[in-house]
């Protein structure tokens, strides 16, 4: 009987998509009266559409956790993601920091409608453990990111409502409210600021179960890959209630590296470094 590590999961692009999408409304007012819900959904679908076809990505990620006193601690991991048409993505993540979990890896098959499937590899025991994916609102590795913040984002996981257009620090954005439709979310709603030209999220506010502002996420340093896919290189999550924060830094994004289903099974999980 040994202690396990806390359950974790992760996905890289999910961070992006997470924040929902917003599509664009081709600015000119539609000829018919579109409801705010229809317009919100349209934006979300457009964001999703614009991220389709990336096939696979690999990247490195650094997480800097800061407590209220400003004391920092570091997480470092590497991951690869395989796009699955018509369902959630498959992903593998392995930790490099903190050192006591170095080599610990997770495999996730995310699904749009049913529960995600998730396995954890504990290298000291050579043990692959199937773990529950129910814990949506828990913190990822002690950070300000919850599991649901970094899990595969599907259009169907939220309902949407277009709120307004807004100039955010000189950037034209759509502001959309989204409400989780899946169970066990820690949020009543999210407010997303979405770049009006490129449809990527730049800012998100998370409201807790009491509908108080819990966290604010800012995404910066966007770069375009393959002339199509936008990825932020820095994400800053500020907990408005505790004063703690987490910075996520992405490095070494690679697209279409030739991964396939065969790289995402329990054997691959034990080999991933």
């Amino acid at each position: 009987m040994g202690l396990n590590m806390p359950i974790f999961n992760d996905q890289r692009r999910k961070l992006l998509t997470l924040l929902l999408a917003a599509p664009a409304l081709f600015a000119i007012a539609p000829a018919y009266a579109q409801s705010a819900e229809e317009k919100g959904l349209e934006i979300a679908k457009e964001m999703d559409r614009r991220n389709e076809g990336f096939v696979d990505t690999t990247s490195n990620m650094k997480m800097i956790l800061r407590n209220r006193a400003g004391k920092e601690s570091l997480r470092e991991m590497r991951s690869m993601v395989l796009e699955v048409q018509g369902d959630g993505d498959k992903s593998l993540t392995v930790f490099n920091q903190p050192k006591d979990v170095k080599g610990t890896a997770s495999l996730t098959f995310s699904h749009a409608t049913t529960a995600d499937e998730q396995w954890l590899y504990l290298p000291a025991l050579k043990r692959v453990k199937r773990i529950s994916s129910k814990n949506k609102s828990g913190p990822f590795m002690g950070s300000e990111f919850a599991f649901e913040d970094i899990s595969s984002q599907e259009v169907d996981k939220y309902t949407y409502k277009f709120l307004r257009e807004e100039d955010l620090d000189g950037r034209a954005t759509f502001v959309i409210e989204s409400v989780p439709t899946y169970s066990n979310s820690g949020y009543t709603r999210l407010i997303n600021w979405v770049d009006k030209n490129e449809y990527y999220p730049v800012k998100t506010e998370f409201y807790d179960r009491k509908n108080s502002l819990l966290k604010t996420l800012e995404q910066k340093g966007y770069q375009q890959y393959l002339g199509k896919y936008w990825r932020a290189s820095e994400m800053f999550m500020q907990n408005q209630q505790t004063g703690k924060s987490t910075t996520l830094l992405w490095e070494d994004f690679k697209f279409q590296t030739g991964l396939s289903e065969k790289d995402f099974n329990s054997k691959a999980l034990t080999r991933f470094r």
Partner: peptide
């Protein structure tokens, strides 16, 4: 019979305890 309780604080220090 094994009866056990596993507590994970999910804090930055990954504090955990297992009573069995």
């Amino acid at each position: 019979l094994l009866v056990g309780f596993r507590l994970a604080l999910n804090d930055e220090a990954s504090t955990e305890a297992l009573l069995g």
